Amino acid sequence: MLAAPACVTAQTWSSSEATFRLDTVAQGLEHPWSLAFLPDGDALVTERAGRLRVIRDGTLLPEPVQGLPELVVSGQGGLLDVLLHPEFRQNNTLFLSYAHRSPAGMTTRVARAELNGNRLTGVEVIFEALPRSGTSRHFAGRMAFDAQGNLYIAVGDRGEMDRAQDTGDDAGGVHRITPEGKPAPGNPFLADSQANDTLFTYGNRNIQGMTVHPETGAIWTHEHGPRGGDEINILRAGTNYGWPEITYGIDYSGLPISLDTKQPGMAQPLHYWDPSIAPSGMAFYTGTLFPQWQGDLFVGALKMQKLVRLEIVDGKVTEEEDLLTDLGERIRAVNMGPDGALWLLTDAPRGNVYRMVPAQ
């Protein structure tokens, strides 16, 4: 089991159903982005600045993991998600998403590697979104495995919104591959010579949260809108999620992006926010520390600096509650821990790792 943290916040918070506190597990991380729990009780944390760190026995080890793939830290890009292979206990394999630069521009890449001690070995690039672009935003990068062992990879529109409607462009969509990097069997565009065989969905702006429903196995995502229009969606093969042809948001300038919120052939979000909360990270609660939260969906918020609890009944949001509104930190990632606690990462030059546990 994961060890107790080194220090504990004195403050407690109350929600409509629980009283809880935050245990501070680690401090001083440079824009922590993602968290993965190892079978031996350690935890891996990515720093967007390009480091993979280890938390062991409640302590952040000073030496980063060595052997990372070549990456670029620029704007919103850097080292992004870390995800363990479903058979990590047998093969020590993990996956990293990150921004990469070449003379042709920047893009989102995914590499697989083996974790041996404090070093990655056998690093292999298994996915690269094309074409590249000169922009430094909307890399997306969230990943998840489904029950069949397929890997889902979110790629943002790179701030060039029309790319999201072009199925011949890897940007602005979700891609599904095997752990070896091949297009997953049954992908929806395999017969389309203009589309990448890895493409699974399109019309996605910038997915920053991805998780698996604990009962149905469906992949749930959320993505940033512009000024308003943040969305929660359930991924379905071949679906067009509409960006930028339909949106509940407006441009940062205040001008409309589209006059439509609905069009035939384009999916409606399960839930949306207006104004934008800038969601990031999401997890279903499946632990026993808060039995009253079983099955609830938790979403972090960067702009609004809070944690949102959504009660889900029959695939629909029936209740929404804002938590940690006075914490004053941008919540980047939300993870369901093997210890039954919710784990949070906060996005800052000196970000924190927290465990949410009952106050008693």
Rank of each mutant, 00 (worst) to 15 (best):
S16F: 00
G295I: 08
D197V: 05
L38W: 03
S102E: 14
G159W: 04
G300S: 07
G41H: 07
E215Q: 15
E114C: 06
R51C: 11
A348W: 00
S133E: 01
L60V: 12
Y241K: 04
T46H: 10
T46N: 12
E223R: 01
D197H: 14
T9N: 14
Q11T: 15
W220H: 05
L84N: 08
T108I: 02
S14I: 07
A164D: 13
P349Q: 00
R56Y: 05
K303D: 08
Q263E: 10
E128R: 07
L61S: 13
H31L: 13
Q263S: 13
M1A: 12
E128W: 06
E70P: 13
R53A: 09
T286C: 03
Q194K: 11
L71I: 02
A111F: 00
Q27N: 14
E63M: 12
G78T: 13
Y98C: 05
G242D: 06
R137I: 03
R89D: 15
G149M: 01
H271K: 08
H271W: 07
G58L: 05
R309I: 05
E47N: 14
K182G: 11
M161K: 06
E70T: 15
I126F: 07
V65D: 14
L84I: 05
P226G: 09
L342A: 11
P349A: 03
A195N: 14
T167S: 10
Y272W: 05
N196F: 06
S97M: 02
R355S: 10
Q66P: 06
G238W: 05
V174E: 09
M356E: 10
L2R: 06
